Simulated assay, not measured.
Amino acid sequence: MVNKVNRRRALVGGAGRSFLGIFAVWVCLASLGCTTRSDRATTRFEFERAQMGLPFRLVLYTPDGATATNAAEAVWTRISDLNAILSDYEAESELSRLSRSAGTGQWIALSPDLAHVLTTAGEVSRRSTGAFDVTVGPEVQLWRRARRQRELPSPEVLARAREATGWTNLLLRHRASAWEAQLVRPGMRLDLGGIAKGYALDEAAKVLRGRNLPRFLISGSGDMVAGEPPPGESGWRIEVGVFDVTNAPPPRFVSLRNVGLATSGDTFQRAEIGGVRYSHIVNPHTGIGLTDHRLVTVIARNGMIADALSTASSVLEPKVALKLANEFQAELLILREPADSIEELASPGFRRWLNTP
């Protein structure tokens, strides 16, 4: 749930790579309570668009519909441009071209966007000792096939995929005013699924702030970036911690302002193989989907860090994940189900974001 003004639920859970359909906009008129007495020139607008194969949603406050529509189109254009750079699905994306250079010994010049994402990914990989790893592409491809076929990959096939991974095999260097990358091992394939969405949300927020539109919430599946809150509110009220197990603790709400939030879990994307529940999230150290059923929520200074930390925290032991979050000055909530019990762990500062009715 977003804000009290809007009674529809936010796009807060994994929705897979589904296409929402045509562009839509809803205008909430001032007479219906979308503005306050001190801010009557600002009206709430909502937009949805499928981007990066995911449903994106934008809520913003502007003086008029034309301003809102123009801002939304600028946001969608920026995200679409980033998809052409960061996608591992698009054969001619910059990322895919970089992956095709694997094993050649070539240093490939990077655009500023790809360089920023890869350098940030490298830092998270280093601090998480590889729990977050954008070179996991061959393992992810193999695991997608295993989920479709409901059959684990053979040890031999898995070993070949793992030979083409490893975050230390992605080399980065800064030359003059540009970054370059080299993929050391043949067959390497980069997958930015655990970080690109968060960066796209950050860039969307930058577009809006650049237009002097500070009041917004933009979300893409389970990730979001919040700007200034709606008029008269202290923050954007977001529901988190919806755990799909019996006797789960009740969901709670956080109040967000100028931060990023990301969630990771297998509530919507999982597979049962041989009686074992596997997540779509791959452990880079094994090449197999996670079997530790957990739901992770991260609040960080921006969407990219929140996105990457939520993936890493799904792989790491909970206490190690809490330490990692602290290194990035982020807050973390983990709900997990070891055996038949429910375990909850939260960073010390997570409580200050909680919002009670």
Score class of each variant (00 low, 15 high):
residue 261 L to K: 10
residue 261 L to M: 14
residue 261 L to V: 07
residue 263 T to A: 12
residue 264 S to Y: 07
residue 264 S to V: 02
residue 264 S to A: 09
residue 265 G to A: 01
residue 265 G to E: 02
residue 265 G to M: 01
residue 266 D to G: 00
residue 266 D to L: 01
residue 267 T to A: 13
residue 268 F to E: 01
residue 268 F to D: 11
residue 268 F to V: 07
residue 268 F to Y: 08
residue 269 Q to F: 15
residue 269 Q to V: 14
residue 270 R to K: 04
residue 270 R to G: 10
residue 270 R to V: 00
residue 271 A to V: 14
residue 271 A to Y: 07
residue 271 A to T: 04
residue 271 A to W: 08
residue 272 E to H: 12
residue 272 E to K: 15
residue 273 I to W: 06
residue 273 I to K: 09
residue 274 G to K: 02
residue 274 G to L: 03
residue 275 G to I: 11
residue 275 G to R: 09
residue 276 V to T: 08
residue 276 V to L: 05
residue 277 R to C: 00
residue 277 R to T: 05
residue 278 Y to T: 09
residue 278 Y to D: 08
residue 279 S to D: 05
residue 280 H to F: 10
residue 280 H to E: 07
residue 280 H to N: 03
residue 281 I to M: 07
residue 281 I to N: 07
residue 282 V to G: 07
residue 282 V to L: 05
residue 283 N to F: 14
residue 283 N to M: 10
residue 283 N to L: 15
residue 284 P to I: 06
residue 284 P to K: 00
residue 285 H to E: 10
residue 285 H to C: 10
residue 285 H to R: 12
residue 286 T to V: 12
residue 287 G to R: 15
residue 287 G to L: 14
residue 288 I to P: 00
residue 288 I to D: 09
residue 289 G to I: 00
residue 289 G to P: 02
residue 290 L to M: 06
residue 290 L to K: 03
residue 290 L to T: 02
residue 291 T to M: 06
residue 291 T to P: 05
residue 291 T to W: 00
residue 291 T to V: 07
residue 293 H to K: 06
residue 293 H to T: 13
residue 293 H to Y: 10
residue 293 H to N: 03
residue 293 H to W: 03
residue 294 R to D: 09
residue 294 R to N: 15
residue 295 L to C: 13
residue 296 V to D: 01
residue 296 V to F: 03
residue 297 T to K: 03
residue 297 T to L: 11
residue 298 V to W: 06
residue 299 I to S: 09
residue 301 R to A: 11
residue 302 N to D: 08
residue 302 N to W: 03
residue 302 N to M: 01
residue 303 G to M: 11
residue 303 G to W: 04
residue 303 G to I: 04
residue 304 M to Y: 10
residue 304 M to F: 15
residue 304 M to K: 14
residue 304 M to H: 13
residue 307 D to H: 03
residue 308 A to E: 15
residue 309 L to K: 01
residue 309 L to D: 06
residue 310 S to Y: 09
residue 311 T to A: 03
residue 311 T to V: 08
residue 311 T to Y: 06
residue 312 A to N: 15
residue 313 S to A: 15
residue 313 S to R: 06
residue 314 S to K: 11
residue 314 S to N: 10
residue 315 V to S: 13
residue 316 L to K: 02
residue 316 L to S: 11
residue 317 E to Y: 05
residue 317 E to L: 07
residue 317 E to F: 00
residue 318 P to T: 08
residue 318 P to F: 02
residue 318 P to C: 14
residue 318 P to A: 04
residue 319 K to T: 12
residue 320 V to N: 12
residue 320 V to T: 14
residue 321 A to P: 05
residue 322 L to K: 06
residue 323 K to C: 13
residue 323 K to H: 15
residue 324 L to E: 08
residue 324 L to G: 00
residue 324 L to V: 06
residue 325 A to M: 13
residue 325 A to S: 10
residue 325 A to H: 13
residue 326 N to L: 08
residue 327 E to G: 11
residue 327 E to N: 11
residue 327 E to S: 07
residue 328 F to K: 01
residue 328 F to T: 05
residue 328 F to R: 00
